[in-house]
């Protein structure tokens, strides 16, 4: 069976690096929300702060992790601008009719099953999808926007500690609110993403590809028909994998 390259090694590295840092940022960030406002309650910030020798240590750790994360993304962008551009184009290219219908049907099918669709006279067929399906796109969009927002508001908060004057605290105040909201939004998306990509058995080949870099042809065909149609005629390389060849798609 033909194998199709979905992720380069750099893509894989950045994905898992990003995932790891997000996890740590989330864990440390949650600890920075004081007990009264903490969705986990008081025990969690108390535990985290104790682990880091106080809230200050935790804050510093969160800031270092945040800085590292931003640095990694910038390095990736510098290393692979074309890949990044491809990713963004794919993610933000939404065919309203096809993609929204896919999204709605998929959501209903995954949670309630085919019956509701049949009841209102819709087929359970899903519109074909490109390199990313609409679910992936939606999460990626949330991740990109949320990530950008988190980075920006995070930087404002760091800036507050090293440079901003008292007259600019309004900015910091708003940054806190937005950081919170962005973190919440991305976390909500992340919940679905983790289930869909890692837990849901149907996506196993996709999950595997985040380690190996490739998917088998039947998976590509079934899950990303438009993409498969686009790349199936291409010849595999010496490993037997059809490369992404981003240049060709530009």
């Amino acid at each position: 069976m033909k194998r199709f390259e979905r992720h380069t090694r750099l893509d894989i590295a950045i994905h898992w690096g990003n995932a790891a840092l997000w996890l740590l940022l989330m864990l440390t960030g949650l600890g920075l929300i004081k007990a009264e406002y903490n969705p986990l309650g008081g025990w969690y910030p108390a535990l985290l702060r104790a682990m880091f020798g106080g809230g200050g240590g935790l804050l510093l750790a969160h800031e270092i992790l945040g800085g590292l994360w931003i640095l990694c993304l910038l390095l990736y962008l510098g290393q692979n601008p074309r890949g990044a551009a491809f990713f963004l184009r794919q993610v933000f290219a939404v065919d309203l009719a096809r993609d929204v219908l896919w999204m709605v049907k998929k959501m209903v099918l995954m949670t309630l099953g085919p019956k509701p669709l049949k009841m209102i006279g819709l087929s359970t067929d899903l519109p074909p999808q490109g390199f990313y399906n609409m679910g992936q796109k939606a999460f990626a969009q949330a991740a990109v926007a949320g990530g950008f927002g988190l980075a920006l508001t995070g930087l404002i908060m760091v800036w507050s500690q090293i440079g901003l004057g008292a007259e600019s605290t309004w900015l910091v105040s708003w940054a806190i609110l937005l950081h919170w909201i962005f973190a919440g939004l991305t976390f909500a998306g992340l919940l679905v993403h983790v289930y869909m990509a890692a837990v849901n058995p149907e996506e196993r080949p996709g999950f595997r590809s985040m380690f190996t870099g490739w998917v088998p042809e039947d998976y590509a065909e079934h899950h990303h028909a438009l993409w498969h149609a686009e790349v199936r005629e291409q010849l595999p390389d010496e490993r037997g994998i059809v490369p992404q060849r981003l240049g060709d798609r530009e």
């Binding site: 919940l191 679905v192 058995p201």
Partner: peptide, 20 residues
């Protein structure tokens, strides 16, 4: 608001997992 959103996402995941 954010708690509700996260709750909704969690509920969705739970529904999917339960169904699957």
């Amino acid at each position: 608001g954010v708690s509700a959103l996260i709750g909704l996402a969690a509920a969705g995941v739970a529904a999917m997992a339960a169904r699957r």
